[in-house]
């Protein structure tokens, strides 16, 4: 299988568009946010597409109402707005209500991390993993490439409940060329290695693989895991995958030390009594207004390939001491 690079949203929306012809239960809602594939959904299924306007609170409420009537809803907007602008609507009308009533609402947030590079902190999104994983009855899904993003469609259709899909806004290289990610496992081992294993999500998988390449050239082999399901991954299998490492490095394009994937992995290794030390790579907790390309921004906030490699090298040294 050879995959041409594609935006995550177009890959996922393409699956939705194809399914809508036969599956009349799919309803697509958006808060005035588009994509080339969305134009096809708009024109081909006008009865099951609704743009609520720039009104994310109503986006969630209307989507909840449609879901209560049996529709499988995909709600689409920019990541910080579909999570934080309407957090109480999400809490009450999705997370809480789905405790009692069967609902299937899939929030598609575009613009994870720094992917809106020049738009600044209003449009960038470093808090969503923390906030969305705080909600019971919510599945948080964070693909690293468009192949995974498209595969998640199957999860959205097959499993009831509320889900948050955090998608990158940029076109990223495909990382699943040979095989599809295993949705049941919730993570994928891209490299086996020794001593240290990277656990990365979203865009940071690309950084993890780049740093792993550099270290490999220096004779250091590290493991790399793509954790694309941040809520319902197989704990047993992740435990097995991590058991032999003495160091775990988490990499996320979100604030460090504020309850994101780093906290989740701390809880995981503690609960599972995994004897490993942790290094957390994440955005240093401040809003910044500097402009630059994504790599430059990442270096400034502590998650670029160079600074990650330095930190991992020291981490490896500290482990061998």
């Amino acid at each position: 299988m050879s995959e041409k690079p594609l935006a995550m949203r177009d890959a996922l929306l393409g699956r939705i568009w194809r399914a809508m012809a036969d599956n009349h239960k799919i309803f697509f809602t958006c808060a005035d946010f588009g994509s080339p594939v969305l134009d096809k959904i708009r024109s081909d299924f006008p009865d099951r597409f609704v743009n609520v306007g720039i009104a994310e609170q109503n986006l969630i409420n209307v989507s909840a109402g449609l879901a209560l009537e049996g529709y499988t809803v995909f709600a689409y907007a920019i990541a910080p707005f579909i999570t934080m602008r309407c957090y109480e609507q999400i809490r009450v009308n999705l997370a809480l209500l789905s405790e009692v009533r069967p609902m299937n609402v899939n929030l598609i947030g575009v613009g994870a991390g720094y992917s809106y590079v020049v738009s600044g902190p209003t449009h960038q999104c470093y808090e969503d993993i923390t906030l969305m994983r705080a909600l019971p009855n919510f599945q948080v899904l964070s693909p690293a490439d468009h192949v995974t993003a498209a595969s998640l469609f199957d999860r959205c259709i097959s499993k009831m409940g509320s889900k948050y899909l955090r998608l990158d806004a940029q076109v990223l290289p495909a990382l699943y060329q040979e095989s599809l990610p295993d949705l049941e496992t919730g993570f994928h081992i891209h490299r086996t290695g020794k001593t240290v294993c990277f656990v990365a999500t979203g865009f940071m998988l690309h950084t993890a693989l780049k740093v792993a390449d550099n270290l490999e050239a220096l004779g250091l082999s590290v493991g790399v895991i793509d954790l694309f399901d941040l809520s319902t991954f197989s704990a047993e299998r992740l435990h097995q995958a991590l058991a032999s490492f003495s160091g775990i490095v988490t990499l996320e394009e979100g604030f460090r030390g504020r309850g994101g994937m780093d906290a989740m992995m701390f809880e995981f290794i503690s609960r599972r009594c995994i004897n490993a030390r942790m290094l957390n790579i994440g955005v240093e907790g401040a809003y910044r207004f500097e402009l630059g390309n994504r790599t430059e921004l990442h270096e400034q906030v502590g998650i670029g390939p160079e600074i990650v490699q330095q930190q991992v090298t020291s981490f490896l040294q500290s482990l061998s001491n």
């Binding site: 309803f27 609704v50 409420n61 989507s63 909840a64 109402g65 449609l66 009308n93």
Partner: peptide, 13 residues
Amino acid sequence: HGLGVGSGIALAL
């Protein structure tokens, strides 16, 4: 919350 959810239900109906 009720009116927004009710609007979604009304649209679905």
